[in-house]
């Protein structure tokens, strides 16, 4: 035993009773100091810079801004919903024993991941140039320009694009589930699809939620691209205001504020989802 430990007998050394000295973490304190300093400089720069914060405050709840915010929210949710449905279907198709389904899923992901989303939005919006009329031949047709409004083009463009990315994420989640789970579900008589729905996908969710949250956050910000085809999202409406009053930065700050609020709320929701799908994995094994 170490010489300097000798004065105490073995019985006297009890970690519950001896004084614990917390290690001094100089590195950590230095990091805190540097970060606080940088944050202070940043705040100071923006507070004293040429931004009229009262204008920002004034437009924060401006009706046009709130209308744009509402549009951003519902189009994000709708596109994510479309993306989720398509994504799960494609992931399932990708795992299907049917080669036609599998290659269809692969081809879909190839096209929509292979081209810029802004290009896809523009293609959808200009679909009328290719197909002047759309519909079901013999039953009903309409003019493409009337059917593909900015809203519809955004839903199609962002939703289909999201579906391609989501399918890869869901597929990765399915791959992470132990093969024994598939066998066990087969052994109790489940069909391929039922086993996917009841056993594999719920377990895949645990792995899938963090990257999907990431995708949703990215999608909220991608909706601002839809302004190029005339969709009135929060950024577009904020721009409309500053074209008139020339308060560019002040109004961009309004948009930044609302994006941050949305993403923060989403992060809270994601944490709750992760707890829900992590059940059975989080508990400490007590033995």
């Amino acid at each position: 035993m170490d010489a300097r430990e000798l004065p105490l007998s073995r019985e006297e050394v009890d970690i519950a009773r001896l004084r614990h000295v917390r290690p001094r973490r100089y590195g950590r304190w230095a990091a805190v100091a540097i970060i606080l300093l940088l944050a202070g400089l940043l705040v100071n720069a923006f507070a004293t810079g040429r931004i009229d914060w009262s204008t920002t405050g004034e437009y924060l709840f401006w009706p046009t801004v709130l209308q744009g915010l509402l549009n951003t929210i519902w189009i994000s949710v709708a596109c994510m919903a479309i993306g989720l449905v398509i994504g799960v279907l494609c992931a399932v198709a990708h795992a299907s024993p049917n080669p036609v389904l599998r290659y269809a899923a692969i081809g879909y992901a190839w096209f929509f991941r292979g081209t810029p989303v802004i290009l896809q939005l523009l293609i959808w919006f200009n679909l009328a140039l290719v197909f002047p009329r759309l519909g079901i031949p013999g039953i009903w047709t309409g003019r493409t320009v009337d059917l593909i409004t900015p809203v519809v083009a955004t839903l199609l463009g962002l939703g289909l694009n999201q579906g391609a990315y989501t399918s890869e994420i869901v597929r990765a989640g399915m791959l992470s589930v132990d093969r024994g789970q598939r066998e066990a579900s087969k052994a109790i008589g489940m069909s391929h699809l039922m086993s996917l729905r009841r056993i594999i996908l719920p377990q895949a969710m645990r792995v899938v939620v963090p990257p999907l949250g990431n995708e949703f956050i990215a999608l909220i910000k991608f909706t601002s691209l839809a302004s190029v085809i005339g969709f009135s999202d929060v950024l577009r409406n904020v721009q409309d205001i500053y074209y008139v009053n020339a308060r560019v930065i002040e109004l961009l700050m309004v948009a930044a504020f609302w994006y941050l609020v949305l993403v923060s709320l989403l992060s809270v929701a994601q944490a709750a989802l992760e707890r829900r799908f992590g059940r059975g994995f989080n508990s400490v094994v007590q033995r």
Partner: peptide, 8 residues
């Protein structure tokens, strides 16, 4: 252990 103090 240093004296009666414990350093993790």
């Amino acid at each position: 252990r240093v004296g009666d103090a414990l350093h993790p």
